[in-house]
Structures are given as C-alpha cells and as structure tokens.
Design a protein around this nucleic acid. Structure first.
Lengths: 201, 201, 201, 201
DNA sequence: AATGAATGAGCCTTCATTCAT
DNA sequence: CATGAATGAAGGCTCATTCAT
C-alpha cells in the first residue's frame, strides 16, 4: 500500500476504510466490487488503486486495520480482572460494539474474515486474524470450569455460545444498519439466560 | 424450465441436480459458475441452459426440488407423534441427513437458501423456502413449553438451538464431504446436553 | 494454452494466428490490443482468452509457432550445400518470404521478437528465438572468410548486412502489406551490389 | 504550450526537456508515461500539463526543440566545405553526438520521430522532422557520385549506410546510457571500411 | 438430445488529465 | 508557480448465455 494514505484527512481515511469494510464484510472478497465501494464511499474508482494497488491489497489493509484496532481496544478492556465466562465474552462483544461507533462494519468484517475462503487472500486472512483469536482464547483461559454444571461440556458450551453470538450478530446486521445498543442488550439477554442454566447455583 | 428434463434417465437427472445443488450450496448464487457444475456433474454446459433456460431458472428449480423433496420426507417422518422438543428437531435433522444419501448437498442447500441475498433470486428463494419453515414451526407447536425451566425463554432457546445446529452443519460440510452419521451423532450429543440444562428434572 | 485450438478448422486457426501475429508484430506486445485483433481477425474477444488464457499466453504461442514453423522450413532450405555468404542469407530471406504466403506477418514478427523488451514476456521471447538464431549462425559458419577483401571485417559486414536487411524489411511492411516478390527482388539487388564490393574478384 | 516555460531557470527547462525526451525516445509516444517522466526529471506531474497542456503538446514541443537545436548546430558544422560522402555523414553524426552532451537522448529522439506511427501525433511529427531531413539531403548533394565504383548504386549506398548507422546507434543506446566517444569511434570504423570498398582507388 | 465453440457485457486495473491546495 | 490527490475512459479478462453442429 501507499503510506500517503495516512496523510489524508482522518475523515476521508475513515470514509474509505468504512466503505471498503462494509462491502467486503457484506459481500465477501470476490463479490465485493469497486463500484459498490465508489457508491458507498463517494470516492472515485482510481483512488482505491492509487493507495492500495489492487483489490487484494485493499482487503489486506482493511483486514489488518480491523484486527489491529480491535486488539488495541481489547487490550484495554480485557485488562479488567473479570473471570466470569459470560462477563469476558460480554466485554469482547461490547468492545466490538464500541468500535462500531467509528467503524460500523468492523464486527461483521471480523466475522467475515473467519469465513472467507477466496484463494487469492485466504492465506493472508488467516494470518491476520490469528492475533485476535489468540487474545480471545487467552482471555477465556482465566475462567475456571468449576462453576459449570457437570452436565455441561465446556467445549460444546464454547461452540454453542459462539454460534449463537454469530447468529445474533448477523441478524443485527441484516437490515444494513447496526444498532450497537440493541445488539448488546440482546447479547445480554441471552447471556443471562445461559448463566442461569449452565452454572451450578 | 423444460419439462423434458424428467424424461432423462433418473440417474442423469440426479447427477445434474446434485451438481447444481453442490455448487449453489457451497458458493452461493452469484459465485456459482456453470463451469464448476460442468466439472462436478460431467454434463455439458449447453444442457443446463437447454433444460433450465438460465442460471436463475436452474437455481429456482434446484431450490424448489430441494424443499419439495425434504417436505415430502418430513411429512412421513414427522407423522410420528413425538412431542419432545429435541426429539422433533432430531427427526428433522435426521431426515435431512437421510436425504443427503441421495442428494448430498441438500441440507447445505436449504441453509444456503435462507442466507441467499442475491437480488436476482432473493424473492423466489424466500417464497420457495416458506413451506419448509412452515412445516417446521407447525411440528414444533406440538411441544408444550411446560417442561422448560422457567429461566428459559422459548424464543431464545429456538434461536440458540437453530444457530448451533447451523454451526455444526457448516462445520460438517467444511471439508467438502458430509458424513451424515457423524453429523447426527454430534447433533445428538448437543441435544443431550441441552435437554439436561433446559428441562426441569 | 488450450490444445483444443488445434481442433479448429485450419482456416480459423490461421485467421487467429495471423491476426495476433499482425498486431503483435506491428505494435509490439504492450500496445497490441485485443480489440485490434478482434478487428483484423473477426474473432470475438473472449475466444482469444478461451484458447490462450491471457495476452502473455497468446504472445508466447504465436512467438513459438512462428519460430518453429520458420525453423522447419529453414531445415529444408538450408540443407542445400550453398556456401556463399549471400546465397545463404538469401535462402534465409526467401524462406521467410515463402512463409509470408501463409503467415504474412511472420517475418516481421521474428524481427519484432528480437526487439521486444516488455518485461512481462522478454524472458520467454529470448528463449523462443534462440533456436532460430542458432540455426542461422550455424548456417553461416559454412562460409569461409577467404573470399572477402582484406579491408572487410567479417564482423562489421555481418552487422551491416543484417541492419540493411532489417531496414529493407521494415520498409517493405511500412504500408501494412508485404509483397514478398518485390522484397526478395530488392534483397537480391542489394546482395548483388555487396558481392561486387566485398569479394576479391 | 505556455511560453512562460522559458522563464524557468534554464536548468529546470533542460531537466524537463531531457526527461520527456528520454522517455519518448526510449518508449515511443504511446508507451511514454507521465509517471516515468516524473521519476527521471523529478518534476511534478501537474507541471508538465501546466506548461504543455497535454501529452501531444509535450511531444510536439520536444520534437520541435530537438530538431531545431540539431539544425542550428548542423548549420554551423556543415558550413565546412567538406565534400566527401562519409565526411559529411560523420559531421552529422558527430554533431548529434555533441548535442548528446547536453541532451543525451536527442539522437535517439530524432530516430524515434522517424519511426513514430501513433496516429495522434504522426502528422505533426512528420512535419517537424522535415527541415532536418531537408538539411541532410542538401548537404549530401555536394557529394559527387564520381568517386563511387560503378558497381555501387548511390541510392542503395544511402540506404545501407543509413540503416547501418541507425543500427549502431540503437545498440549504443541499448544499455540506457550513450557514450558519444565510443559511438563516434564505431561509426568511424564502419565508415573507413566502407570508404575502402565503395570508392574507386 | 448433447456438445462446447463463440460472444459480449461487466469488473479490475492503468494512466492521461484535472484541480484544490 | 508547484504539487500530487482525484477522476474516468479504455484495455485485459471472466463468465452467463447462445448457437452451429
């Protein structure tokens, strides 16, 4: 990429980042078209290539930016000494929700990266997202399984919760907008219910 | 579509249906390419258009076929008077798993249809899948919420279970093959755990 | 490339080969446009890519074809036991002229290959043309310098003759057509003059 | 063009002229890119257009400048009363070589102009180069064919010599630099040989 | 009926040209 | 005056669709 991108007004940088992030997150790498980005960001076609060289370069930049930004915020928010499983997960989701104030599609982008399978960028994508997954796992290790009812398998709980959060998130984005407060409220409701049934009382 | 399709040998019909279903289910409408179908089905490019007119026509046919076939099987299997929530869902999943013996990608196709958002076919897709969703809901109405712990919201349970099943299914398909027995075993494991924690004992 | 190209009617093969050869020879790799080829060959844009994958693939094919065809003809024509310098060179040029009956731009293409400097294909081009240059050198080794006047340096003669032939050829192509008979007549005239002044009598 | 160009410091004028000349001479009109000129001249992209309007205007200016400068020098150097064919040609080449001290790519540019065939500027190019060709021919008319051996056609000699000089020049530029002394030495060698074989002694 | 060669509209990318600073 | 960010038209390439065989 061309580092002069960072000399642009922050506002324009974000307009471009958000435009690209939205289209990549909503459509996936292959179906994301420059024309779509032109439409949502109001920035001419040539400019994307001026700064990022090609589509793969743009994707790489956005993916990287997204993960780095998220990890920075997580580093702050996860420093609380929360040890409860759902508390930790809630902090993670509320961090994403916070980021969505500036980068509305960042949470969806992160998710899209995990599912991306276009050969042209799959390698780079997996590499970029690793630090994020690492930080999540690390945070969850603080939680002791002792509080779980013995009928509950930790592994299956992880999957169930993660699939559910993903489902809720997708629904939250399904109308093209993302209401972070409503999203967090819904996450909270689900987590409350789960707490009630998976913990020993 | 051209009804003479049904005059073809059943074997060839299924080869074409499976080929199209696989590519549509794995890649989604837009990214599904005729060439991919030619490769997996070993049927020439022109033939798809001869019988189905165009890509949208082919998708419509496959989507319709998939839902109708599944509904037929469900009509039989759901006629059992099972009333337990997880029993009913298991019957549904095992019906899909059964279908996968003949149409390996049908379960994934059904799921893909629910997520499809390509404007060219989104309308028709939503229409086609409705009868299936209707039958599912109807079946689940037999279940009385009485057995649920009061901390459990029926609506959130529905979502949690459906998101989880979807997640398990996606993972089951992620290597390109679908082992229906292993899939059902995994579903069973999750359902057992859930039974333990959502029912009053 | 796609070997099915050779299943096409010879006539169509040659129309495509000639179209590509003309544009590449006249404009050079970078400036040769698919649209130009479409115009001169009357073959749609997609077809070139169907058979040759991309522009570089097409160039490689044409370059290779050109050299191989020429070398085949040279193998026959140079088998005569001519030992005179200008006789040998004349055989070479008349061989090229003969080929131009079927592939009118082949002589110009060979020349263009020697001058091509586009990075994308320069490597492959140099490789392809080597066998031709080898055969030429080999043929000229039969000639003994004894017949040259002592004032004549063999090396400078080689260069002078080759630059002159190249100039004559370029002029012969300058109006877009190539009259092989006129070309050979002109070559012959120059060679006659040169014989008179470089040989001892 | 904008005449204020001549108000620039001579140094900057020459940097721009040389930059444009180099790229046009090496790549030809169509392939010469503004970015290349920016790189070699260290002058911003906008400035070229500020002074010359567009690419064609820049080419026209450079072509014109080149010919005018050369003709000015030729006017001086050809005023000697040399009447020998090769002496006259040598004066011409040594004049070009001299110019290359200030405008290193001028000799190559002159040659490129004669070969340029881009429709956008071919007309103007032919017009610009005419005075130069005229001066050359005029100078050569001083030479009487009497000294030529009768086997030598004056017309063919002209072509042979001009093609050869062109070839030598191209080779001299082929590594990106131009060593004028070495070039003149090589020209001299060839001319010596030719004198020996085309003149009656 | 069946094939796959042939077509052209659409997307990625380049580059001359414009224009705000 | 100078800069280089910004634009959009044009060329390479893909892929749904057509059609001769």
């Amino acid at each position: 990429m061309n580092d002069k991108f960072f000399d642009l007004k922050k506002e324009k940088q974000d307009k471009m980042i958000n435009g690209a992030m939205q289209i990549f997150a909503q459509k996936g790498y292959k179906l994301a078209s420059t024309d779509d980005m032109v439409k949502v960001a109001g920035v001419s076609k040539g400019l994307w290539f001026h700064y990022f060289g090609n589509k793969a370069g743009l994707y790489t930049f956005v993916a990287d930016y997204c993960v780095k930004y998220l990890n920075m915020e997580l580093a702050v928010n996860l420093s609380s000494n929360a040890t409860d499983y759902f508390d930790i997960l809630y902090v993670i989701e509320s961090t994403k929700a916070g980021i969505s104030k500036i980068y509305p599609f960042a949470p969806l982008m992160i998710q899209a990266m995990e599912e991306e399978d276009d050969e042209e960028i799959t390698e780079v994508t997996k590499l970029k997202i690793e630090p994020y997954l690492g930080k999540i796992n690390e945070a969850l290790e603080r939680f002791s399984n002792d509080r779980l009812r013995e009928e509950v398998s930790r592994e299956m709980l992880d999957k169930t919760v993660s699939y559910t959060v993903k489902g809720i998130r997708e629904k939250a984005y399904s109308n093209g907008e993302f209401d972070s407060d409503r999203y967090l409220a819904e996450i909270n409701e689900y987590f409350s219910m789960m707490r009630n049934i998976v913990y020993t009382n």
